[in-house]
């Protein structure tokens, strides 16, 4: 356990020193705050709490931003250390390879959690200061947004390690990371939409396919999870007719976390140095 925490602390310090945490926090805060400031105008004076509007806009932002930041911090975790020559020395220490992965995972997820909590938290505070009528349900939705955004980030950090374990060179890992981002964030939904229109698929199949993409699972969790959010986001139709149990959605995200991370560890154990 001590070895894991040492590695995690090291990654966190690296992130703070290399301004990674700062850059990610500023980026998330800037985008979140501008969404709050600009986004409140079109909503006008509807009866929906302003915080609920914020949850909807922030979750759409997260889908693009969080996986990107997560892949950026994680893609060279293994291949980068291998290329810099620091991996050989690290593994000659009394530490098992899985401990190194878990330690890095905790550290990188910590970096992302700090950026998310501060960046989105700033937006939440702004809403709190400028509006009234935010009920408990909307706060719960906001907290759930923070938690699930960190979980989404953790999923893509795990995918980043898998990429890092597969690639032989750092450049290849970077290319693969971009590819994974494009597939999950852009291509998958476009293809699904195309299929939906062209093939007139049954809704149960659509919901099953949505679970195959962690960003869609995240979207379902946030946009369909809370009554007011659901109506505001236009997800009401999809989630009720598709009949998706939110526990299954959360389970899908957790599986997306565990499986790539597990494979990354397995690959790393087999890697010859």
């Amino acid at each position: 356990m001590r070895a894991i925490l040492t590695i995690a602390g090291q990654e966190l310090r690296d992130g703070l020193r290399d301004r990674w945490v700062l850059a990610a926090t500023l980026l998330m805060a800037a985008l979140a705050l501008s969404l709050v400031l600009l986004g409140s105008a079109p909503a006008g004076t509807v009866s929906t709490p302003a915080l609920t509007v914020t949850v909807v806009s922030l979750s759409s932002l997260s889908i693009f931003l969080v996986p990107l930041i997560a892949l950026l911090v994680s893609y060279d975790a293994i291949v980068g250390e291998s290329e810099r020559g620091t991996l050989l020395l690290l593994l000659s220490y009394p530490i098992a390879r899985w401990q190194m992965i878990v330690g890095k995972f905790i550290g990188h997820t910590g970096i992302l959690a700090i950026a998310t909590i501060i960046g989105y938290g700033a937006a939440g505070l702004l809403v709190l200061a400028t509006t009234s009528g935010n009920d408990a349900a909307s706060w719960l939705a906001f907290l759930s947004l923070l938690g699930s955004s960190i979980l989404l980030g953790a999923v893509f950090i795990g995918l980043g390690y898998l990429i890092s374990g597969l690639a032989r060179e750092r450049g290849a890992a970077a290319g693969l990371a971009v590819g994974v981002w494009v597939v999950f964030i852009i291509l998958f939904d476009t293809a699904l939409l195309g299929l939906l229109v062209a093939a007139n698929m049954p809704s149960s199949l659509v919901s099953a396919l949505l679970l195959l993409n962690p960003t869609d699972a995240y979207r379902l969790l946030n946009l369909a999870g809370f009554e007011e959010v659901r109506f505001l986001s236009g997800m009401a139709e999809l989630s009720t007719t598709a009949g998706i149990d939110l526990r299954i959605v959360a389970g899908s995200l957790l599986a997306w976390l565990a499986v790539p991370l597990g494979f990354a560890t397995l690959l790393f154990h087999r890697r010859e140095l």
């Binding site: 690296d14 810099r84 020559g85 620091t86 050989l88």
Partner: peptide
């Protein structure tokens, strides 16, 4: 190790 490397920063 040969050509030992450390985190530059």
């Amino acid at each position: 190790p040969e050509n030992v490397a450390f985190e530059q920063a």
